[in-house]
Amino acid sequence: MGQLQQFDGRNAVRTSVRFPMQLAVVLATESGPLEALTVDVSANGLLFSADRLPPVGSRVVFTMTMPSAVMGAANDVMIHCTGRIVRHQHAENALRAAAVIDEYFLKV
């Protein structure tokens, strides 16, 4: 099992349904842009893998294009999000991080 680093030292309670989706996303981080691939996405956040990880507690900004089938819409939906990294996970020879979404809005 992978090692976890919790932002607050406790296990986060996950209440949203997570959708396993691999979406390319570029996160704006304090140390510059970071190309990543989502592992799963929920209404509250996302789990992503990348070659390097932003520090736990750091702010991230990103835009995701959600497939129309997932959103129940006629067209794909772009969602602009502001959030923060809440934990790191090292699993399956991959670096992963979870980000909680603090704010979001739909881009038209």
Score class of each variant (00 low, 15 high):
residue 56 V to Q: 02
residue 58 S to V: 06
residue 61 V to C: 12
residue 61 V to W: 13
residue 62 F to L: 14
residue 62 F to T: 10
residue 62 F to P: 06
residue 63 T to V: 03
residue 64 M to P: 05
residue 64 M to Y: 08
residue 65 T to R: 11
residue 65 T to K: 15
residue 66 M to D: 09
residue 67 P to T: 07
residue 67 P to R: 05
residue 67 P to K: 01
residue 67 P to H: 09
residue 68 S to M: 03
residue 68 S to L: 05
residue 69 A to I: 12
residue 70 V to H: 03
residue 71 M to T: 12
residue 72 G to V: 05
residue 73 A to D: 13
residue 75 N to R: 14
residue 75 N to A: 05
residue 75 N to H: 12
residue 75 N to C: 06
residue 76 D to K: 10
residue 79 I to N: 06
residue 79 I to M: 14
residue 81 C to N: 04
residue 81 C to V: 05
residue 83 G to R: 08
residue 84 R to I: 03
residue 84 R to L: 07
residue 85 I to R: 00
residue 85 I to Q: 03
residue 86 V to F: 07
residue 86 V to E: 15
residue 86 V to N: 07
residue 86 V to D: 11
residue 88 H to C: 10
residue 89 Q to A: 15
residue 89 Q to I: 13
residue 91 A to G: 08
residue 91 A to V: 08
residue 92 E to P: 04
residue 92 E to F: 07
residue 93 N to S: 13
residue 93 N to H: 15
residue 94 A to M: 14
residue 94 A to R: 15
residue 95 L to V: 00
residue 95 L to E: 02
residue 97 A to Q: 12
residue 98 A to L: 10
residue 99 A to W: 04
residue 100 V to D: 07
residue 100 V to F: 01
residue 100 V to N: 00
residue 100 V to K: 09
residue 101 I to S: 09
residue 101 I to L: 03
residue 102 D to K: 11
residue 102 D to E: 11
residue 103 E to N: 06
residue 104 Y to P: 02
residue 105 F to Y: 01
residue 105 F to R: 00
residue 106 L to H: 02
